[in-house]
Amino acid sequence: MTPEQITLVQQSFSKVAPISEQAAVLFYDRLFEVAPSVRAMFPQDMTEQRKKLMGMLAAVVGGLSNLETILPAASALAKRHVAYGAKAEHYPVVGATLLWTLEKGLGEAWTPELAKAWTDAYGVLSGYMISEAYGAQPQAAE
């Protein structure tokens, strides 16, 4: 990620933070709509889960300028997700849901440049988490 992309992600998240509760509801409603099979991994009462999501997003976004500070927490989270039944193939669905939520929440402020910055940020973090949870992904044969 470029420093400009990091700034874009951080500035846009500062606009989401005041509506974090609504954003989390939107996120999980959408996730369960597009991937109903994951609903069983979550508690019936999603109040605490929504707070955890927004707290983790805030920590990650805040740490983008210094990734080393957030990688241990991301590694631990990835490993906990395995115990809950998460699989590597869930990460793209969660990423798409996050981008959809941000687009809805940010409205006209959601630009192609901002979408790319968030896509890149999620790609870096999810790639790391997948490798931590499931081991290094095999390289394609050349």
Rank of each mutant, 00 (worst) to 15 (best):
E89A: 15
L64N: 10
L64P: 09
T69R: 07
E33T: 09
K79P: 05
A17V: 14
S75N: 11
L99N: 10
M56E: 05
R80D: 12
V25Y: 10
V60A: 15
F27S: 01
T69N: 07
Y84K: 06
G55Y: 03
A76L: 12
M54A: 01
H90I: 01
L99G: 13
A78H: 07
V34E: 00
R30F: 01
T97G: 03
E21H: 06
F27E: 02
E89K: 12
G105T: 12
E48M: 15
A24N: 03
I70K: 02
F27A: 02
L64C: 08
G85T: 04
A58K: 08
L71W: 12
Q22P: 05
P36V: 00
G62Y: 03
V94E: 05
K87P: 08
E103Q: 15
T47M: 07
K104H: 11
A23C: 01
V94K: 02
A83N: 07
V93Y: 08
R50G: 11
G105W: 05
A83G: 07
K51V: 15
A83E: 10
A40I: 06
L31H: 02
S65T: 13
A96L: 09
L99W: 06
N66Q: 14
V34Y: 00
A74K: 08
A58M: 05
I19Y: 09
L77D: 08
A96T: 11
A74C: 15
A23D: 00
L26G: 02
